[in-house]
Design a protein around this nucleic acid. Structure first.
Lengths: 232, 232
DNA sequence: GTCTATATGACGATAGAC
DNA sequence: GTCTATCGTCATATAGAC
């Protein structure tokens, strides 16, 4: 992430470490403010006020407000990527049905997004006029989509998704569904609990219809353990 | 919409008419600017600049910037409601299958949203810090949801949606799907043509899975007139 | 009623002293 | 690294000419 980082940079001297801590503090407070004022309502002056410094001092750490948004974008993308990666590992070793895996992954992904609405809006909508993420900040989002694709390829290889299904289309449809849940939940009922929102509870129903459409006619629901050649 | 309108107000004198024309012009230019700068990037000064007047003159027509956003919200809600109402009338008299009706209505709704991204973001996301629509501006959006619900109730009454389906849940799931398409299309490929966007083309597939899940087992596809007692 | 002229305070950002 | 001083732009408000 940090450009120019090489081997010796792994051991940071005190100044560098202090600098990184300050940067983290700035980002934490920025997230806090976005939660209160909206993503586009973030102001450099308000960050400085809460940190007990003057606004120009922040320009030592970030050359512009958009650079700050870019760091927030990268941070959010990294976090949600980590969530998806953990799901991928867990589900790759599970014997759950397609429907159950979709419910599991859907709840996990949507849960993080609803619990982190500021990051989610910044990542998936475009609420800040004039800000576009840099390719470096966007990169974890690309890795995340690749993970979802290889998860679906695995599901197909294991016979849970029909062999004639176009994986790209299935990924696209599942992405549409999850982003629809998030969009509706955040726009219409942002204050409901992450796990029990009125749209989050639609996940099982949506997972069922997806599994019925793309899954094999005989879902291997409680099928007794003759799984062969589990190549992950 | 305009409070205090009574019978004699139907015939407006020249001044009143001129005033309304100016208001429409302000809103048109505001939409234009939002399209270029983002919804939250709208500025009163820029509107005045393009109209060839000074910023304070705009406060004669709108008491605040948020009142302007409110008028834009009401206008967008009225327009999309009109789209849904037209679909409702057309489909109410059609003999199309559930799947075909969903594709038809989905394309219509999503098409308007993708063609009018500024209104869509203002209506369905919350991109403007400090702005919440007034109940009057929000009212067409409520009527729109009611229309969708009664459309689904009709579909159930006509036997296209299974009798045991909870209509509210079906409306919720369909709302999630359409808003997911819109969200993905606008966030990831906003410049693709409204009719041929890479997520808009997912509508048939999503409509098929929805119809398979909530529809009657024998979709009246070519409708041989005698709908036989739904063997399910 | 509608306009111009003008004032206020917040914002993002820069220059330069220490 | 942090500060003061300053710039230009913004939304907003008021006074007063026509």
């Amino acid at each position: 992430m940090l450009p120019g980082m090489t081997t010796e940079a792994v051991t940071l001297d005190r100044r560098q470490r202090r600098r990184l801590e300050t940067i983290e503090e700035v980002l934490d407070i920025a997230v806090e403010i976005m939660g209160e004022q909206g993503v586009a309502g973030l102001s450099v002056g308000e960050i400085a006020r809460r940190m007990g410094i003057r606004p120009p001092s922040l320009y030592v750490y970030f050359p512009s407000k958009n650079a700050l948004y870019d760091a927030l974008f990268a941070r959010g993308a990294e976090q949600i990527h980590a969530v998806v990666e953990a799901d991928w590992h867990r589900l790759g070793e599970s014997d759950l049905s397609l429907e159950q895996q979709l419910i599991d992954a859907g709840r996990s992904f949507v849960g993080w997004c609803v619990a982190n609405p500021s990051y989610t809006q910044l990542l998936f909508w475009r609420p800040v006029p004039g800000f576009t993420p840099t390719p470096e900040a966007y990169e974890p989002a690309i890795r995340m989509l690749a993970l979802t694709t290889s998860w679906f390829e695995q599901l197909q290889a294991r016979g849970l998704i029909r062999a004639d299904v176009d994986v790209a289309a299935a990924v696209r449809d599942w992405t549409v569904i999850t982003s629809g849940v998030i969009s509706q939940q955040l726009a219409n009922a942002p204050d409901e609990q992450p796990g029990s929102g009125r749209f989050v509870t639609a996940i099982p129903s949506l997972a069922a219809m997806f599994a019925k459409h793309y899954g094999t006619p005989t879902p291997s629901r409680s099928r007794g353990r003759a799984r062969h050649a589990d190549k992950r």
